[in-house]
Amino acid sequence: MDIHQILKYLPHRYPFLLVDRVLDVEAGKHIHAYKNVTINEPFFPGHFPHHPVMPGVLILEALAQAAAILSFKTLGTLPTDDSVYYFVGIDAARFKKPVSAGDRLDLHVTVQAHKRGVWKYKAEARVDGQVVTEADLMCAQRDLPAAAEA
């Protein structure tokens, strides 16, 4: 999937879209996507000015965005303006190496379970084949409350 296809599956936009390409996706099973981390990322001037490191929470967010694409592909649907795909849990998160400008962050997510709209995943981010972050994620799609009429 190129960026134009990804934009159909994720409501995120700059500066919060953290998936650049999907290399492989098998509905109900797994996804392999990536994010090119460049020095132009909006978080680098403050994290850290003399040693740019991608914040760990954004690595987890990138994994969750890949998981969302996998979920929508599995369901055979696209997101709508009436719902949102939330992070609802993160367990066993480990940050093994820093991610820096110039790295390609490979995102590997596998479906562990899906029940009543809650998805559980095993997620791993790699740079040059080495695991930099791993976690068990939970996400859920929820309907947004109807806007109150004026």
Rank of each mutant, 00 (worst) to 15 (best):
L63A: 07
L63I: 09
L63K: 04
L63S: 05
A66C: 06
A68D: 06
A68S: 11
A68G: 15
A68W: 07
I69F: 05
I69L: 12
I69E: 03
I69T: 14
L70T: 01
S71E: 04
S71Q: 11
S71I: 07
F72D: 04
F72P: 13
F72Q: 10
F72L: 08
T74I: 03
T74S: 02
T74R: 03
L75G: 02
L75N: 04
G76S: 03
G76K: 03
T77Y: 15
T77F: 12
L78A: 14
P79L: 10
P79Q: 14
P79W: 13
P79C: 11
T80L: 02
T80F: 04
T80M: 03
T80E: 03
D81R: 01
D81Y: 00
D82E: 10
D82H: 05
S83K: 09
S83L: 04
S83N: 06
S83R: 03
S83H: 10
V84C: 05
V84S: 03
V84F: 08
Y85G: 01
Y85W: 08
Y86W: 14
Y86V: 14
F87M: 14
F87K: 12
V88A: 03
V88D: 03
G89Q: 00
I90T: 05
I90M: 08
I90C: 10
I90D: 08
D91H: 06
D91K: 13
A92G: 08
A92F: 03
A93S: 07
A93F: 00
R94W: 01
F95D: 11
K96N: 09
K97I: 08
K97E: 09
K97L: 07
P98N: 11
P98S: 10
P98A: 13
P98C: 12
P98I: 11
P98E: 15
P98Q: 13
V99A: 02
V99R: 02
D103L: 06
D103H: 10
R104P: 07
L105H: 09
D106A: 06
D106K: 09
D106Q: 06
L107A: 05
H108F: 15
H108P: 14
H108Y: 11
V109P: 07
V109H: 05
T110H: 12
T110I: 15
T110P: 13
V111A: 02
V111T: 00
Q112W: 02
A113H: 04
H114N: 13
H114F: 06
R116K: 13
G117Q: 02
